[in-house]
């Protein structure tokens, strides 16, 4: 038993999508205050992992604890930055509205947004250099700008654990640098950040710890121990054929069982 509650604890997490297994028996215990990258090939279940942690995708087995809590109430201390494709960019909201949504949890549901919340939202926009665009509809921003807005919203949430799904995807170099600076700053403040990342070339300099994932957990630990040829090859290399075959079968079976309930 650890003295302080771990930001994130995942035990034997198994997820399947449309009868196909995506994640298999994932175990993770993540310590407070780190910048952690999730790395793996396409279809390895990186996004699924954080979506399952957030309860957006239901798990078939295992459990997740966030700061020692399970279920609905545990999400309050988490800030989530979704993948850009998953957002409806035509929705009638301005940049400021989006950032203010991050304050909703603090403002109380039946109360109006206070002046303080607005000030904080503006500060967060300032941090990501987006103050000029506060009144724009979110669809009228470039990819990098949209990403920065969502980052600002996560900042406004003032969470302790951040989960980010490909925050560097479709972002120009300047923005990427700005974002990584910001993430480091957050880490300095003792926040825990878990980031889905697909670019191997800069993973080593960005993150303190790395989660190597390909359907199952290949390795988790400090960059210098995990970011080596052997483990990467294992992550990106061929899959275990019998394993996937059987896992497929069992998933089908589970699906049938599921239907009966």
């Amino acid at each position: 038993m650890s003295k302080t509650l771990l930001p994130l604890e995942v035990h034997d997490l198994t997820v399947s999508y449309n009868r196909k297994p995506v994640l298999y028996g994932i175990d993770l215990e993540i310590e407070e205050g780190g910048l952690i990258g999730i790395i793996g090939p396409n279809g390895a279940g990186k996004s699924t992992l954080i979506k399952t942690i957030m309860g957006i995708v239901p798990a078939n087995g295992g459990w997740v604890k966030i700061f020692g809590q399970k279920g609905k109430n545990s999400y309050r201390r988490v800030g989530y930055v979704p993948q850009r494709e998953s957002v409806d960019w035509d929705f009638p909201v301005s940049v400021l509205d989006v950032v203010l949504m991050g304050r909703y949890g603090h403002a109380g549901w039946l109360k109006r947004i206070s002046k303080k919340d607005r000030i904080i939202a503006h500060e967060c926009l300032e941090k990501v250099n987006m103050s000029l665009f506060a009144d724009r509809q979110i669809g009228k921003l470039s990819g990098g700008q949209q990403q920065r807005v969502f980052l600002a919203r996560a900042l406004a949430q003032e969470s302790d654990l951040y989960l980010m799904d490909e925050p560097f995807a479709g972002v120009d170099a300047v923005t990427e640098n700005a974002i990584i600076e910001l993430l480091r700053e957050l880490k300095q403040k003792g926040k825990t950040l878990i980031i889905v990342h697909h670019d191997l070339s800069n993973a080593k300099e960005y993150f303190d710890q790395i989660i190597l994932l390909n359907m199952r957990l290949i390795a988790y630990g400090d960059v210098d121990k995990t970011f080596n040829k052997d483990l990467l090859q294992k992550t990106y290399g061929g899959r275990l054929t019998v394993f996937t075959e059987i896992a497929d079968q069992s998933a089908k079976n589970e699906h049938v069982e599921h239907e009966s309930k």
Partner: peptide
């Protein structure tokens, strides 16, 4: 607008 944010806001 954002179901995941709603989840994290409980």
């Amino acid at each position: 607008f954002d179901q995941t944010l709603s989840v994290s806001l409980g």
